[in-house]
């Protein structure tokens, strides 16, 4: 059973998700509390993204239950999923975070404009608001997307591989930023990542996804280098054999 308290931001009970006739995740049970930093890990193709989409409500549960209550969600997609053809400035991207609150014809409000600038400052991009989004480095674009997610004023922030393809220094900057959000504002974070070191240094607990099953891993088990790395390696090997077969 999923442990629940009154402050639970999201609870998922025996939920299954999939595409078409194919079930990708089955019987997943998760509860997310404020100020938790949860990592979702697993081999390639194991269903991490499917689970994340289920959490965000982008996929309807085929069975089981997902209760989000009134929780405000924030989402940071993989930056490479966004087309750089759009001639957006940094501020125009960040403003999108407030779109859910605005009247139809408006693209900005004075209050939200200040919030956008504050969030840009928060992610260390003060003064970059008029720069073209597409001209930024990978790490900078990731920060812009985080600022956009923060403008959504979320209680639960979901990030999809935020440090993939960014350099060590940028990854550390992102990690520090996420940890400060958790510690200072009680923000809950669900983060999909492949990077064990990154997860190990910031996650409070981890969800392991493999073969359509979601299992909980404690922080302690993450600290046991051998076990998770062996599992990831085994997953990679299985995936490779699957391709060869």
């Amino acid at each position: 059973m999923v442990p629940q308290t009154g402050s639970c931001l999201l609870s998922m009970t025996a939920a299954s998700f999939g595409y078409g006739k194919q079930e990708v995740i089955g019987g997943a049970s998760i509860a997310i509390e404020p100020a938790e930093f949860i990592a979702v890990m697993g081999p390639n193709g194991s269903g991490k993204t499917t689970l994340m989409r289920g959490v965000l409500g982008l996929l309807e549960a085929r069975s089981g239950r997902v209760d989000r209550g009134d929780t405000r969600l924030g989402y940071v997609p993989q930056r490479e999923s966004l087309d750089r053809l759009y001639p957006l400035t940094v501020l125009e991207v960040v403003r999108m975070g407030a779109f859910g609150r605005l009247r139809h014809w408006r693209t900005k409000s004075r209050g939200d404009e200040n919030l956008c600038l504050q969030m840009l400052e928060r992610v260390g991009l003060e003064g970059a608001h008029s720069k073209p989004f597409s001209s930024l480095s990978g790490g900078q674009r990731q920060r812009v997307l985080m600022a956009r997610a923060l403008v959504m004023q979320p209680q639960l922030l979901v990030l999809d591989e935020p440090t993939s393809g960014v350099d060590q220094a940028a990854a550390e900057g992102i990690r520090d930023l996420l940890l400060s959000m958790v510690r200072e504002e009680g923000l809950a974070i669900l983060l999909v990542s492949h990077q064990l070191e990154f997860v190990r240094t910031c996650a409070s607990r981890a969800l392991w996804v493999e073969g359509g099953r979601v299992t909980e891993k404690s922080k302690e088990s993450l600290l046991q280098n051998g076990s998770v790395e062996a599992l990831l390696a085994a997953g990679k090997k299985a995936a490779k054999e699957g391709i060869q077969a």
Binding site: R53, L56, G57, D83, M152
Partner: peptide, 14 residues
Amino acid sequence: LVSFDPDTARVLGL
């Protein structure tokens, strides 16, 4: 938003 980032649009309830 629907054209640029449909997933975020859904998360925002559009």
